Simulated assay, not measured.
Amino acid sequence: MLAVDGLQAHYGRAHILHGVSLDVAAGEVACLLGRNGAGKSTTMKAIMRLLPPTGGSVRFEGRDLDGLAPHAVARIGLGYVPEERRIFPDLTVEENLEVGRRPPRPGQAPWTAERLYALFPSLGAMKKRPGGRMSGGEQQMLAIARTLMGNPRLLLLDEPSEGLAPVVVDRLAEALLGLKAEGLAILLSEQNPGFAASIADRAYLLETGQIRHHGPMAAVMADAGLRARYLSV
């Protein structure tokens, strides 16, 4: 579904991504794992064209994304939940969801507010609450729900568990497993290998803007040496 090949990216003169290659199949959850500063968020932004790549290619369902603006990438089926969440603090939960609404895609059951309230029950209990009066975990769930209102075929999730309490992380994992069961493909960026292991099928270990290892998530979790080399602080 998503094929990234030799992706290069710069911030000014700083070379951040050095030939990142990865793929995500339909219905699969793949994870970018790495320490802070490894290049995970930059990879997400380069895929979405929020940061124009300086080399390599990105193809989504066979279509080359070269030259597309971020909004055009979203319209063809890539949904992006940024690390900063970026909800509208003065809008209610209902209004935030309405802002994200896009027409349904052929052959895909459309996401509605009612379906999302079933997936995230806490949102259903606070439909009229402004986003700025929600906890960090509630805002994260709202950010994911708003993106789903665009009916994406693949979801990019950047550091969704960061700063959340363990009990909230568990609820978030449950919701993401629900999305996986629906057949939604997900590319996840994480520093927390335990959270990633609860939902991901495969892992890409990223260090200094390069993929150092990739393989089944279970194999990564079973290899203490690998985790110590690329994930421990």
Results as ranks from 00 to 15, higher is better:
Val99Asp: 05
Val99Gly: 06
Arg101Asn: 04
Arg102Glu: 10
Pro103Lys: 10
Pro106Arg: 15
Pro106Thr: 07
Gly107Phe: 08
Gly107Met: 11
Gln108Cys: 12
Gln108Tyr: 09
Ala109Trp: 03
Ala109Asn: 06
Ala109Asp: 13
Pro110Leu: 08
Trp111Glu: 05
Trp111Pro: 07
Thr112Asp: 13
Ala113Cys: 14
Ala113Phe: 10
Glu114Leu: 06
Glu114Ala: 15
Glu114His: 07
Glu114Ser: 13
Glu114Thr: 14
Arg115Met: 11
Arg115Val: 10
Leu116Arg: 00
Leu116Thr: 03
Tyr117Lys: 06
Tyr117Phe: 11
Ala118Arg: 14
Ala118Thr: 12
Leu119Phe: 00
Leu119Asn: 03
Leu119Arg: 03
Leu119Cys: 00
Pro121Asp: 05
Gly124Leu: 07
Gly124Gln: 06
Gly124Tyr: 00
Ala125Met: 07
Ala125Lys: 12
Ala125Cys: 02
Met126Pro: 08
Met126Val: 14
Met126Asn: 15
Lys127Arg: 15
Pro130Trp: 11
Gly131His: 08
Arg133Met: 14
Met134Arg: 08
Met134Asp: 07
Ser135Ala: 02
Gly136Pro: 02
Gly136Ile: 09
Gly137Ser: 06
Glu138Lys: 03
Glu138Thr: 01
Gln139Leu: 11
Gln140Ser: 10
Leu142Glu: 01
Leu142Met: 04
Leu142His: 00
Ala143Val: 01
Thr147His: 11
Thr147Leu: 05
Leu148Ile: 03
Met149Lys: 10
Gly150Met: 12
Gly150Ile: 14
Asn151Tyr: 05
Asn151Glu: 12
Arg153His: 13
Arg153Cys: 13
Leu154Trp: 04
Leu156Ile: 11
Leu156Phe: 08
Leu156Asn: 07
Leu157His: 06
Leu157Asn: 07
Leu157Asp: 03
Asp158Tyr: 00
Asp158Lys: 00
Glu159Asp: 04
Glu159Met: 01
Pro160Gly: 05
Pro160Gln: 01
Pro160Phe: 04
Ser161Gly: 01
Gly163Thr: 02
Leu164Gln: 00
Ala165Trp: 00
Ala165His: 01
Ala165Thr: 00
Pro166Ile: 05
Pro166Asp: 03
Pro166Gln: 03
Pro166Leu: 05
Pro166Glu: 01
Val167Ile: 15
Val168Cys: 04
Val169Lys: 07
Val169Met: 06
Asp170Cys: 04
Arg171Ala: 14
Leu172Asp: 04
Glu174Gly: 07
Glu174Val: 13
Glu174Asp: 14
Ala175Pro: 11
Leu176Gly: 02
Leu177Ile: 11
Gly178Leu: 00
Gly178Met: 02
Lys180Ala: 11
Ala181Ile: 11
Glu182Pro: 12
Glu182Leu: 15
Gly183Ile: 05
Ala185Lys: 14
Ala185Asn: 13
Ile186Asp: 00
Leu187Ile: 09
Leu187Trp: 08
Leu188Ile: 09
Leu188Glu: 04
Glu190Asn: 03
Glu190Ala: 09
Glu190Asp: 01
Gln191Gly: 05
Gln191Phe: 00
Gln191Met: 02
Asn192Gly: 10
Pro193His: 03
Gly194Pro: 02
Gly194Leu: 07
